[in-house]
Structures are given as C-alpha cells and as structure tokens.
Design a protein around this nucleic acid. Structure first.
Lengths: 162, 162
DNA sequence: GCGGAATACTTGCGCGTGCAACTGGTTGTA
DNA sequence: TACAACCAGTTGCACGCGCAAGTATTCCGC
C-alpha cells in the first residue's frame, strides 16, 4: 500500500457514499419502473403530493429535486401528458407557474410508495441499528446543510432569505 | 403533519442520503471540470491509476464504476482519443481487453486529485468529528456490502467466485 | 473434437438532461 | 411614465448513458 495521493482515506470515504447511492438507486429504480415511474418523476410527484394544495412553484421544485429549470420543464411536460400532473397559473406573478398533482397522480405515488418504502427498509434502514441510523442521519444532515442549500425551497418562507 | 404514507421517516432518511450525494457531486464536478474531466472519466482514470500495471479489464472496470458495458466502451473511447488511456489485448482471453492509463493520464489524475481531496475535506470529511465520520463509514460499508456487490470486481481473485 | 450456450466487448438507437439563447413579466430608478 | 436590469419558464442543441442486437471468442457436454 503506497502512501500515494491516490489512496487518500478521504477518497475512499466519499467513494463509499457514492457506491451506496448507486446501489440503492439501482434497486429502487427497478421497483419504481414496475409502476412506470422513472425515479425523477416519482420524486417530483412525491414532493407535490406532500405539499399543501398538491402544488409547488416550478423553480422551487427544480431546486428541491436538483434539476435544471429546463429539465424540470420537460419532466412536468411528460407528467402532464400522462395526466399525472398539470400546470396552474400563479395569480400573484404572471411569469410563474405551479405544478399540481392530479388525483390520478396522487393515486399512483401512493400506490408506488409502499413497495418503495419496503425496499428502503430492506436495503438501507433495516440494515442498521436504530442508533446507527440516527447517527448517520444526524451526520448527513450537517453535510446537507452545507452542500445543498435550497433542499427545502418553497417549504418555509424563512428559507428564502438565507 | 398527517401520519401519511408519504411522510414515512424512511423516505426522509434516504432522501437525506440522496441530497447529500447530489450536493457533493455538484461541488466536486465543478472542480474536476477545471481539469477538463467529467466525474465519470475522473473515476475511471483514478481506478486505473490505482491498479497494478495501471490496467483493468473492461468488464471489471464497468462493475466498479457502475456503468453499463456499452457506456464504458465509449468512455474509454473518449479517454483514448485524448491520449489519457489506451486499450491492450488480454493475452489469456482474446475476447477481453484491458484499459490502461497512459503516463499523461496518470499525470492528469494526480494533478486533479489534489483539489479534489481538498474539496472532499471541506464539504464532507471535515464537517464531521472523526468518530462521527468513522460511524458513518462503518454503517455505509454494511449497506454497500448488501446493495453493491462487485464494488471491488477485479481487485481480489476471491471476488470473482462470488 | 464438434455444436451450442455463455461471455467480452462493440454499435445503433432513443431518451433524459444541462447549457445557452429566447420570450414575456416584474421591479427599481429617475 | 419610461427605461433598464432582472427573473420565471420554455425551447434548440449536443452529449452521455442504458438497452438490445451484433460479432468474436471461449467453455462445456457428449
């Protein structure tokens, strides 16, 4: 084991994080595709379904799901074509638009989310002791606060002023 | 807060993991692009540079970096065009091919990796107490073992027989 | 040692995404 | 009121990727 720059412990530390992410993504995507839902579309529907009025501003949604504005435009296009979401004008700002889940979209996420959560339990949360999981989450929360501002764009008025 | 299926704690637990991943990816990609390296190409070069002889079988490499065979073929094509890697025939199996880092490729990763590690320190490892980081890594190792078999394809002879 | 199944890589094709340019709407300044 | 800077969302374009089909080689049963 050469004390090489290429073998830095920090490199393997994020490597671990990334590999876990890939692995989980893969498993979860498989299950979601049984419902005809790519992961990104599932996440958008989920976030809409959780929001008051089932709606969110396009730009807030884009920030939450880490998608570019253009990417989100087309994603919502696809959802709209399938009748899972629709757009609504923003009364206070005529530039803006809301994305809104339709009842059908809501039914679909609620159906898909059950198996989804089961898989999370099987491949992630269930593999760890409760205390272990709590420790991981608390650590990740710190990191998220640093690297992913706007994770909760549009959820709290205060968040906008950060 | 409705005790809704959509607000399951496990959902927010992976959400956290995924958001951290996105955030880190974004920051790191920015730095790598200063060296003209997309993250996937950096990772491939890094893994090659760390391997004995600077070489790895295409299929092992694909498994390690979670890329499809086709995807890796083209990624190595790009590296080859830039003179950062090349292919070598496998003497024992004429179907197979090795990807090999060139000296120039090695110079580039070694140059890029310094800033890369600095950013990891700043946005991940440095944000956590040593014990905290150790706990996270130990937990993630368990998860990886479950969800990402083949994370070390081609590194140990035993791994091939799983 | 012959024929079929499995394996290692490559290629054609379609799709989702980011980036940059564009349209229309809003806010600030004088 | 007029003008400029800015902002929200959409569209054109190029690119990287997965999937499935194709080619070449190796492995296995008989």
């Amino acid at each position: 084991m050469a004390p090489n720059v290429l073998d830095d412990a920090r490199l393997t530390a994020i490597g671990l994080l990334f590999e876990v992410h890939d692995g989980l993504t893969r498993r979860l995507a498989e299950q979601l595709s049984e419902h005809g839902l790519p992961p990104a579309e599932f996440e958008v529907l989920l976030r809409l379904a959780r929001s008051p009025g089932g709606r969110l501003r396009m730009s807030d949604l884009a920030a939450q799901v880490s998608l570019s504005a253009g990417g989100l435009t087309r994603l919502v296009d696809r959802l709209e074509r399938r009748g899972l979401a629709e757009r609504a004008a923003c009364p206070t700002d005529r530039r803006g638009a809301f994305a809104v889940v339709t009842p059908e979209g809501r039914r679909l996420v609620e159906k898909a989310v059950r198996g989804h959560v089961e898989l999370i339990e099987r491949w992630y949360t269930g593999l760890l002791e409760p205390a272990e999981l709590a420790a991981v989450s608390s650590a990740l929360r710190k990191v998220r606060a640093a690297v992913h501002p706007g994770a909760d764009a549009g959820t709290t008025p205060a968040a906008a002023s950060l």
